[in-house]
Design a protein around this nucleic acid. Structure first.
Length: 597
RNA sequence: GGGGCUGUAGCUCAGCUUGGUUAGAGUGCCGGUCUGUCACACCGGAGGUCGCGGGUUCGAGCCCCGUCAGCCCCGCCA
């Protein structure tokens, strides 16, 4: 973890974790935490930990004063001590190859306990028979948890990724500009975190879900290139990869097209991965949204393994098989995947796959396989030999099919495909498969009401080839919107925005937002657009997620210094918390059921 | 909003299937021995609201109901 800096001060001369053979002979004053003691009677060893690592300190009666030896034996773990002594080479056979400092040790002369510690509530260093404490306790005693080298390394990497981001973008003319944290509630999208206003009774600010409108206004203002490492807030239910407050690398630029954003984001992503020691090839491959959903059933496909979906509708056309016949007649298709070597999967394994498909909304899954040249499985007897051949199932292959409308079969087959890759061990762990998914639809239809909603957001520019569709078939119109995906995980996304106030007005009309509502919600942006807006667009990358991937962590909580739990609680400081009645009064807020609290 | 898993010593866990004497282990902690250890070793000791509340039972860590907390998933996340 050594960063090769001198962190010497008037209190300490070196970082113990940085000492090496070259330092032998130096007089040093170290400060750090007592990680472990080994008292052998006359002689005492302390493992002293600081930001750079661990160094062994020996207290030998021939060098150290008696007070120091006594204190070294008595001091509690995790206490902070200052030690004066000399760096010496360890005796032959006494070196510790597992320690970066293991060729040397510090022979102590004096010691002071400057920060005595009570017995830690959770172990910082795991000893014999100990495993990592529960996450609940780790979060409750976060200052102890953060002392662990693993978390320190994650936080240090996060810092370096931030600096790379700033340098990379600054060097390309991007200006880091802060936008408000107290902002205006937005009815669409995620739930807002609201902040009551004291001076304006009954009115509320919202914490930003993203700086979207502000960054567009900065383009209208002529700053041309903006970025921010922006904190965003969304009051939705959480997951391992979702925190209520999170950090985005937010980027916007003027006089650009989508192509420019791809190049820019690829350069930044390559720089971030390089900082973590990984060279990645750019540019990334690109795929249309329509292709992604057709071939993989998802808008963020994992391309590390094949297992493309295929359309088997033609093979089943005319077959007197109730399930497929019904699906085809009601406008659906028969889609599925062929799994090389999958014929060996057990009945139970395939049942489990079907359960996943059902969990994702499918009524069931059809199975066929070819063994010893013969096609078997429930649908087989309904197919003529010619129809069976159309399925293209090779020897040893298992074929799984879902007969349904695409909106059902796509998510079901996506789940099945991912699980098959896992079960068949087809996922190459080390491969990094970056991908641009382009040309998202502009709108999505609400399944129950049929109303149009924005897929990305209402300021996303329609695809230039599809402008005519806005009047005829808006649900078929594509947007100039793009996501960048790594191994099936969305790293970020963005779009080219609408710069023309007339187009923006049409968008609102299609979204059933009338002029008055639009003015009320987005007036400041609309006025801005009418005052001369350059063509502009941008992207936002999930910074925590990138830090998580690059540090090898499996939870965002391991790359955030003070994260929240899945109930959005902060266990360490204890937020949220009730507040005094007079504070609520000042904010013009009265709680329901106050008497029962 | 829904589903699943977990909660026993400071920490990590066993005990719960099939209710029954004094709830165990490792580690940590406390005391002692030990001059080259490095997950030191050895000897001794203390340490429990079995998450919380209610119920069933002669009897509950164990069975039932509720509740709180943590984690994972679905919905949700423009």
């Amino acid at each position: 973890m050594s960063e090769g800096l001198s962190l010497a001060t008037s209190v300490r001369s070196h970082l113990g974790g940085e000492l090496r053979s070259a330092d032998v002979g130096s007089r040093v004053t170290l400060g750090g935490w007592v990680q472990r003691q080994r008292a052998l009677g006359g002689i005492v060893f302390l493992d002293l930990r600081d930001r750079a690592g661990v160094i062994q300190v020996s207290f030998d009666p021939k060098f150290a004063d008696a007070d120091a030896i006594r204190m070294a034996g008595d001091v509690g773990r995790e206490s902070v001590v200052l030690i004066e002594g000399e760096v010496v080479a360890r005796p032959e056979g006494g070196r510790n190859a597992e320690l970066a400092t293991g060729d040397v040790e510090v022979k102590a002369v004096t010691m002071r306990v400057v920060g005595p510690a009570e017995t830690p509530a959770i172990p910082v260093t795991l000893g014999k028979g100990e495993s990592l404490p529960s996450e609940e306790l780790r979060l409750r005693h976060r200052y102890l948890d953060l002392r662990r080298p693993e978390l320190q390394a994650n936080i240090v990497l996060r810092h370096r990724l931030m600096q790379v981001t700033r340098r990379h973008l600054s060097e390309r003319g991007f200006l880091e500009i802060e936008t408000p944290i107290l902002t205006k509630p937005t009815p669409e999208g995620a739930r807002d975190y609201l902040v009551p206003s004291r001076v304006s009774a009954g009115e509320f600010y919202a914490l930003p879900q993203s700086p979207q409108l502000y960054k567009q206004l900065l383009m209208i203002a002529g700053f041309d290139r903006y970025f921010q490492i922006a904190r965003c807030f969304r009051d939705e239910d959480l997951r391992a990869d979702r925190q209520p407050e999170f950090t985005q690398i937010d980027i916007e630029a003027s006089f650009i097209a989508a192509q420019d954003i791809y190049t820019l984001a690829e350069g930044l992503i390559a720089a971030l991965w390089k900082e973590a020691g990984v060279t990645i090839p750019i540019p990334f491959p690109r795929m249309s949204y329509a292709d992604a959903v057709e071939k993989y059933g998802t808008d963020r496909p994992d391309l590390r393994y094949g297992l493309e979906l295929f359309d088997a509708t033609e093979a089943f056309r005319g077959a007197n098989f109730g399930i497929t016949k019904g699906a085809i007649e009601s406008g659906g298709r028969i889609r599925g995947l062929r799994i090389p070597g999958g014929a060996v999967l057990s009945r139970k394994q395939v049942d489990d796959l079907e359960a996943l498909a059902r969990g994702a909304g499918a009524a069931g899954m059809l199975r066929l396989k070819r063994e010893k040249g013969e096609l078997t499985g429930p649908p087989a007897k309904f197919l003529s030999p010619e129809q069976g051949a159309m399925l293209g199932i090779e020897e040893g292959e298992l074929c799984l099919l879902v007969a349904a409308p695409d909106r059902v079969s796509s998510p079901a087959l996506d789940r099945v495909r991912q699980e098959v890759a896992k079960v068949m061990k087809r996922v190459p762990e080390k491969t990094l498969s970056f991908l641009w998914v382009l040309d998202f639809p502009l709108f999505e239809k609400d399944a129950t009401t049929g109303a149009l909603g924005a897929v990305h957001h209402p300021f996303t520019s329609p695809h230039p080839d599809d402008v005519a569709l806005l009047s005829s078939a808006p649900e078929k119109a594509r947007a100039v919107a793009y996501d960048v995906v790594l191994n099936g995980t969305e790293l970020g996304g963005g779009s080219i925005r609408i710069a023309d106030p007339d187009v923006q007005r049409r968008m609102f009309n299609l979204l059933a937002i009338d002029d008055e509502t639009a003015q009320q919600r987005f007036g400041f942006l609309l006025e801005g657009l009418r005052s001369g807006a350059p063509p502009h667009g941008g992207i936002a990358l999930g910074f925590d997620r990138i830090a998580m991937l690059l540090s090898g962590a499996t939870s965002l909580r391991d790359v955030i210094a003070f994260p929240k739990t899945t109930a959005a609680r902060a266990l360490f400081e204890g937020a949220p918390t009730p507040v005094a009645a007079e504070d609520l009064r000042d904010l013009h807020i009265r709680l329901e059921d106050e008497g029962t609290r």
